[in-house]
């Protein structure tokens, strides 16, 4: 999906944009341009900066854009990238939900991919990093990881790597109520991905993406999935950090998600360290 991708960074001149552009280039990502309105002509870590996506596209070919744009301007920047035919990764935290709906539906119309918002991005270990995750905890391998969380993903990846389990790809889909690619989109992708043998799905309280994923798995999923759900002991009605992580009434509890997944044959780890054991057991 992102191997060999030509990437631009929107919001490249900000603190986060600069830092992660450097980290992505060091990891091997092909960053071909940066965009910040009003900063055209600058150079950041050897990358030329343009005033707009359109300006950049006149000079270079691009497949993906990664956004480090403040929440207030995220919609405008995302729409600009989509308008110009780019897939996008939105790292930005705090994007209003009605803006997210517009972004995601516009991308769908155009047949483009959106990862996030409020996500760590995606990585193909040893190849390409389109995100903010610490690259050195990943190892190349055959387990794909898909997660709604950031640092919890690092936690799980670290345990996999320390136990000799490498990863084919890791995607943080984001912790907001409305996001672009979701569990089903990625399970679909991993099922047909030759580099992926097994999948780790990391969910959390709030919403019903995990329950819908379980329905999808029930239709006959071909690869082994191990899951972990955070927030088993989260109180009702309290927003646990992520805008999407809130239990309202009977909806969005960890229990309902765990039951839905177990019912369709997915093994669910009780603590993060158990994920390794469940991946190693047969069946």
């Amino acid at each position: 999906m992102i191997n060999g991708a030509k990437v631009i960074v929107q919001g490249i001149t900000g603190k986060q944009g600069r830092f992660h552009t450097k980290a992505m280039i060091e990891y091997g990502t092909n960053v071909v341009a940066g965009v910040t309105p009003g900063k055209g002509g600058e150079v950041v870590h050897g990358v030329n900066v343009y005033n707009s996506v359109k300006d950049a596209l006149e000079e270079v070919e691009v497949d993906w854009s990664i956004l480090f744009v403040p929440a207030k301007f995220a919609k405008e920047a995302a729409m600009e990238a989509l308008q110009n035919g780019l897939n996008i990764v939105v790292i930005t935290e705090g994007v209003p939900v009605h803006d997210e709906i517009e972004i995601v539906n516009f991308a769908k119309q155009k047949g483009l991919k959106v990862v996030g918002p409020n996500c760590p991005g995606l990585i193909v270990p040893g190849h390409t990093k389109l995100g903010i995750m610490p690259g050195d905890i990943f190892r190349k391998g055959n387990v794909a990881v898909v997660s709604r969380s950031g640092t919890l993903t690092y936690e799980v990846i670290n345990q996999l790597t320390m136990n000799g389990i490498g990863q084919s790809m890791a995607v943080g889909i984001g912790g907001d109520p409305v996001i672009g690619m979701d569990f089903i989109d990625l399970l679909n992708y991993f099922e047909n991905d030759d580099d992926t043998d097994k999948i780790v799905l990391i969910g959390e309280i709030g919403g019903d993406l995990e329950e819908h994923a379980a329905e999808f798995i029930a239709e006959g999923y071909k690869k082994k999935i191990v899951a972990y759900i955070a927030g088993v002991f989260a109180p009702e009605g309290k927003r646990m950090g992520h805008a999407g992580a809130i239990i309202s009434g009977k909806h969005g509890t960890a229990k309902s998600k765990i039951e839905a997944l177990e019912k369709v044959g997915v093994k669910v780890a009780k603590v993060p360290s158990e994920i390794v054991k469940l991946l190693q057991t047969e069946g």
Binding site: T153, Y154, E204, M240
Partner: peptide, 29 residues
């Protein structure tokens, strides 16, 4: 802790081992 998912998971692991957390505090990124 840092990160909502990691802190939620920390609370779960505390409960799993028989403890009771006093709060959820995610210092953010």
């Amino acid at each position: 802790g840092n990160g909502a998912g990691l802190v939620m998971s920390t609370l779960d692991v505390i409960n799993y081992y028989g403890g009771k957390p006093a709060d959820f505090l995610d210092i953010g990124g």
